[in-house]
Simulated scan of single mutants.
Amino acid sequence: MYKIPIYQPSLTGNEKNYVNECLDSTWISSKGRFITEFEDEFATYTGTRYASSVCNGTVALHLALVALGIGPGDEVIVPTLTYISSVNAIAYTGATPVFVDSLESTWQMDPDDVSRKISPNTRAIMVVHLYGHPCDMDPLVSIAKEHGLFMIEDCAEAFGSFYKGRHVGSFGDIATYSFYGNKTITTGEGGMVVTNDETLYDRVVHFKGQGLAKHRQYWHDVIGYNYRMNNISAAIGLAQLERADDLLAKKRQVAQWYAEGLAGVPVTFHREVGNVHHSYWMCSIMVDDPLMRDPLREALEREGVETRPVFYPVHTMPMYAQKFQRHPVAESIGWRGINLPSWPELRIGQIQEINSMIKTFVTKG
C-alpha cells in the first residue's frame, strides 16, 4: 500500500444511492433509466448531439473505427506517444497504424508530421488528447478536410478539456471516452462514443448490440459485438457527472500546487500551452536526464509515493516494431516523463511533501 497512491476515485455523491436503486429495481444489465440519462447528460456536457455508452474505453475506440468502416488495407495515423489501446483498436480492424511524432511544447501529436505521413491508403487520423492537454485542432481539422480523411478523437484522458472554448471530442467525425477507475469521472469500467452524425450514431448502436436489427426481434443483420454498458455502471457515471465541475476544479488546483511548488526546480511540468483548458487527468513532469527518471521514481516509492512512467512510444513495442522508426520527441518524453499522484482529493500538504522530495532528489543530482 502506498501512502500517496497515483490515483483513487472520488465517490462521495449519489453513487451508492443510484446503485442501490438499480439493485432494488433489478435493472442491473444493459437496460435501465441510468443508461439513457447518463448518455443524454454526457452528450450535453461535451457539446455533442449523440452519445452511446459502452463497456470500456478500448471497445469505444474499436466501435468508432468499425462504425466508420475502417478495415484491412486502410491506414490510420496515430501518435506513437499514447496508451496502447489507441493503436490496438486500429489493429483489431485489420487496418495499419501509422505513427507520428509529438510536439515538445504540448506532448501532443505533431500536425506537420501528420501531413508527411499521409498516403493513398490513409483513411483516418486518430487524434489523442494525451493526459488531458488538447491537441492543436485547427491544423489537424484542416488536414483532415483537405485530404478527405475521417477524424477520430481519443478523449479517454481528456474529459473536461477545451480547445478554444470548445470541448474536445466535438471536432472530429466521432470521439471516444474512457471511465476506468482512474479517470476524472469513472464507472469502474466503461466508455462512451460520441458524435454529431446521426448515421454514425445509428451504426454505433447497431454494432455494439450484437448487430440486432432495429425492427425485427432477434434478427441480426451484421456481425456485431457485445459492447454495451450495464445500468449499474451508468448509475455510477451519472452520479460522477453530477459532480464533474467540482472534480475538474479540484484537479486544476492540484496541478497548480505542483506547478507552484516545482517552480525553479530543474524538472519540466506539463503545463497548458495556447488557447486551451487542460483538464490535468495526470499531472506530469520530465526530468532533464533520462537516467534520472527511474531513480527518482524509486526514491519516491521508498517514501510511499506511487508514480508511473509516461507512456512508452508504441512504435518501440515488439508487436509494432517490425520496421525501425525514429520519433525523437516522443522518445525523449517517453524516457524522461513521470506521472505524479493526480486524484482530486489530494491535499496541499501531500503535494508539498512530494514537491519537496522531487526538489531534494534532483538538486542533489
Results as ranks from 00 to 15, higher is better:
residue 108 Q to A: 11
residue 265 V to K: 01
residue 125 I to M: 02
residue 87 V to E: 05
residue 244 A to Y: 08
residue 192 M to C: 12
residue 285 I to W: 10
residue 26 T to M: 09
residue 57 G to H: 03
residue 299 A to I: 00
residue 15 E to I: 03
residue 128 V to I: 12
residue 72 P to M: 04
residue 24 D to F: 01
residue 298 E to Q: 15
residue 233 S to T: 09
residue 37 E to G: 02
residue 303 E to W: 07
residue 84 I to F: 04
residue 152 I to T: 03
residue 354 I to V: 15
residue 10 S to L: 15
residue 107 W to G: 01
residue 365 G to A: 05
residue 123 R to S: 02
residue 258 Y to Q: 12
residue 45 Y to W: 09
residue 95 A to G: 00
residue 189 E to G: 02
residue 157 E to Y: 07
residue 257 W to Y: 12
residue 77 I to Q: 08
residue 156 A to F: 00
residue 360 T to C: 06
residue 147 H to D: 00
residue 32 G to N: 06
residue 314 V to F: 05
residue 28 I to P: 00
residue 47 G to E: 07
residue 161 S to W: 03
residue 93 T to L: 02
residue 167 H to T: 11
residue 320 Y to N: 12
residue 81 L to V: 09
residue 24 D to M: 06
residue 26 T to Y: 07
residue 363 T to K: 10
residue 269 F to Y: 14
residue 362 V to E: 06
residue 125 I to K: 00
residue 261 G to E: 11
residue 214 K to E: 15
residue 98 V to E: 07
residue 220 H to F: 15
residue 10 S to I: 15
residue 209 G to C: 10
residue 9 P to K: 06
residue 355 N to A: 14
residue 344 P to I: 02
residue 183 K to Y: 04
residue 337 G to L: 09
residue 167 H to Y: 11
residue 167 H to A: 15
residue 312 Y to K: 13
residue 79 P to F: 04
residue 356 S to I: 03
residue 79 P to Q: 10
residue 252 R to Y: 05
residue 17 N to I: 12
residue 104 E to S: 14
residue 318 P to I: 05
residue 340 L to S: 07
residue 188 G to M: 10
residue 68 L to M: 14
residue 181 G to T: 08
residue 351 I to P: 02
residue 42 F to E: 00
residue 323 K to C: 04
residue 247 L to W: 04
residue 353 E to S: 13
residue 61 L to A: 08
residue 287 V to E: 06
residue 223 I to Y: 06
residue 64 A to S: 15
residue 30 S to E: 14
residue 334 G to W: 02
residue 304 G to R: 09
residue 287 V to Y: 01
residue 87 V to N: 03
residue 76 V to G: 02
residue 132 G to Y: 03
residue 43 A to W: 06
residue 78 V to G: 07
residue 313 P to F: 03
residue 219 W to H: 15
residue 151 M to I: 13
residue 311 F to A: 14
residue 339 N to Y: 00
residue 13 G to W: 14
residue 316 T to K: 13
residue 176 T to F: 11
residue 210 Q to N: 14
residue 26 T to C: 04
residue 301 E to I: 03
residue 98 V to Y: 07
residue 249 A to G: 08
residue 66 V to C: 10
residue 183 K to A: 04
residue 332 S to M: 11
residue 291 L to D: 09
residue 245 D to T: 12
